[in-house]
Design a protein around this nucleic acid. Sequence first.
DNA 1: CGCGAAAGTTGTGCACTGCACAACGAGGTT
DNA 2: AACCTCGTTGTGCAGTGCACAACTTTCGCG
Lengths: 274, 274
Amino acid sequence: MTSTAADTPADRGAERPERNQSASLRRALAVLEHVRDHVRDHAGADLSLTALADGLGMSKSTVLRLAAPLVDAQLLARDRDSGHYRLGPGALRLGQAYLATLDLRTAASEEAHQLMREVGGTVHLCVPDAPYVVYVDKVENETAVRMASRIGSRAPMYCTAVGKAMLAWMPEDVLGAVVAAGLPAITTRTLTSANALRAELTRIRTRGYAVDDRENEPEVRCIAAPVFDHNHTVIGAISVSALTSRITAARVRDLGPTVAATATRVSRTMGAAR
Amino acid sequence: MTSTAADTPADRGAERPERNQSASLRRALAVLEHVRDHVRDHAGADLSLTALADGLGMSKSTVLRLAAPLVDAQLLARDRDSGHYRLGPGALRLGQAYLATLDLRTAASEEAHQLMREVGGTVHLCVPDAPYVVYVDKVENETAVRMASRIGSRAPMYCTAVGKAMLAWMPEDVLGAVVAAGLPAITTRTLTSANALRAELTRIRTRGYAVDDRENEPEVRCIAAPVFDHNHTVIGAISVSALTSRITAARVRDLGPTVAATATRVSRTMGAAR
DNA sequence: CGCGAAAGTTGTGCACTGCACAACGAGGTT
DNA sequence: AACCTCGTTGTGCAGTGCACAACTTTCGCG
């Protein structure tokens, strides 16, 4: 640090880059996320080395060298002809391994199907990822449903029944994070103030289930209840949703306890006391 | 492990660590893969910091600091109580993003369902990942099939119909890589010599489809054909499989052209000339 | 067909990162 | 309460990887 007479470039007071933060690893993950978010469309979605470097504000050599291990791990793949980057099969392996660890999914599967048959709407299973929810399973009424495209996608907590159901039983600081992330209006009925949301959560806690009454999509109602593990920690939520014509306001009061009972059974399977 | 003739004997003694190889990033990816491969079972699957460090031969502090960005990126998650590591929702996001880029899946979906109805067996869609195949879609006959657990899993090329179907139209060096990876016998009928495999590939090219006649599982026959893109590059394969009682040796000759025709239609959707 | 531009790849100095070791704090067990 | 194990944090020093630029390759265009 303090060198001899030959004075060092005294940058004292300057930004301390904080050691041991794995800057290069973070850069590499930024590369990965950039590819993930940028390969929306199918075949045409190209990401050349220069496009990547420009988009991330890195130099080409940096991206090239960071990408090499990602390609080796098959999280990324390079087009053999163009050299452009896309996600690789390793990404799929990770995702499937993640799903395999979620015994919540297997535990809820049967109940979810029964709930779908009973109610007729679409049943969703979610896990928290504050301030978002992640959809991990989906059961639809139609036959021959292909693997749901929405599995793996995220939605905000504050404007979905599943999100509010989980939030109602999560620590206070999570609500803070949700509010901090912003509460933009999705429809005219979205709860957009922290106070309104807080009051709603209290209501949810007393009745045992959450309702999304056209707060996220104009024509959809949704009823959700939380799933707990053996620690009484919220590990997910299960919901039914349908067009408002299928789930009338009056029917919500019947369906609410049904969904809550289903969620409670799943919780018990997961080891919850009650 | 499978390092064949990778390193030359020339660099003996002189340990050249090879610069610019992103050693730390590779370590981090090793951590990720270790977690992925080690969290087979559900809730009980714990990976403590020390267990991870021991399993990888790294020091605890290294693992701790490498894991931090992975946790931030939600590829990993830590159990709030025990601090143990597991895969995070970000892994699912990656996997789903990968599937979204595969328009092969959407292109083949309808044909796959029709093939399943026509033949009655299980239909698989795969992409190459030499020397393996990766299953990216699956259509089963039974109703109410949950999201296929085998999606995302891998199988060797040399002993599967889909693998051989792709291999038959891939560059010669891919066959070399497959042979180099080894051809262990899975059943008594597995092709275990490079020559037998090469002869089989020639046969496949002439008739237009590949057959796995109990080479991978004792009681299963499988018929597959390759899918090409606009460059006439192999981008996948589609197959039907069933117990030998359902697909007799005689029926193979009927089903082969059916599967090949299906694959050709998918290829055409993908922009192939013919 | 040859020329130019743009993209991808490789070499290298130097600053900074992150590895290992060890000390420290936090629970849990006897 | 003492012990033990696990997770976390501080720090010297070696080695990594970032940026820049030279080089190679590929492609477009007259």
